[in-house]
């Protein structure tokens, strides 16, 4: 579904991504794990074309590296940005409708809205409330819900666990699994929390200083000594 080949990103003189290669098949949950500054967010931004990059990004057999961000959203490749970035001055429901900004199929939009409310009942209790008044966990739910409203075929999540309590993290990752299983939605998950990410994903890539170190099944990675040492803090 998504094939990234030799992806490079530069911030001025800094070479942030040094030729990434990875691919995602339809229906998979893939995770990119790595520490701060490894290049995880840069990868997602390069795919969404919020920043310039060199290399090939093929989505559904089409080269998308030259398309603008708006076009890419139109192709149902949706990113949930890091730090949630919900619209604080819009209500919960308006935030969700922003996700459907490019869609014209009103009946289906209403259906998807109800689906999001079913997935995150807490949002339903707060439809009229301002986005900015939600708690961190609710904001993350809103951010994911908003992305689902764009009817994504590939959903890219940037650190959904950031700054959240363990129990809320559990809830959110459960929802991600649910969406994947029920709708066959393909997910690209970028995480620092390697433990929960690998428990959720099918396959994983370990990324460090802009390069992919190794890859494998999520279960194998979870028990891989290198991963356990570097990211799970075990000796």
């Amino acid at each position: 579904m998504l094939k990234v080949k030799d992806l490079h990103v530069y911030y001025g003189g800094i070479h942030a991504l040094k030729g990434l290669n990875f691919q995602i098949e339809k229906g998979e949950i893939i995770t990119l794990i790595g520490s701060n500054g490894a290049g995880k967010t840069s990868t997602l931004r390069a795919i969404s074309n919020l920043i310039k990059s060199k290399g090939s990004i093929k989505y559904k057999d089409q080269e998308i590296n030259d398309l603008n961000a708006e076009k890419i959203v139109g192709m149902r490749l949706i990113q949930v940005p890091e730090g949630r970035r919900i619209f604080t001055a819009l209500s919960v429901e308006e935030n969700l409708l922003m996700g459907a900004y490019l869609r014209k199929d009103n009946e289906k939009i209403e259906e998807d809205l109800q689906y999001v409310y079913k997935l995150f009942p807490r949002l339903k209790e707060r439809t009229k409330q301002y986005g900015g008044t939600l708690s961190g966990g609710e904001q993350q739910m809103l951010a994911i819900g908003r992305a689902l409203m764009s009817a994504p075929e590939l959903l890219m999540l940037d650190e959904p666990s950031m700054g959240l309590a363990p129990i809320v993290i559990e809830e959110i990752f459960q929802a991600i699994k649910e969406i994947n299983q029920e709708n066959g939605l393909t997910v690209l998950l970028v995480e620092q929390n390697a433990n929960i990410a690998l428990q959720t994903a099918h396959r994983g890539y370990v990324i460090e200083t802009g390069e992919i170190l190794f890859t494998g099944n999520a279960k194998d990675l979870l028990h891989d000594d290198r991963v356990r040492k570097a990211y799970l803090g075990e000796e």
């Binding site: 708006e70 959203v73 139109g74 922003m98 900004y101 908003r146």
Partner: peptide, 18 residues
């Protein structure tokens, strides 16, 4: 709503296809 979204957070708005 698109305008308010841009005012609020331009990057997130762009990520929504605005």
């Amino acid at each position: 709503r698109g305008l308010i979204a841009i005012k609020d957070d331009e990057v997130a708005a762009e990520a929504m296809g605005i």
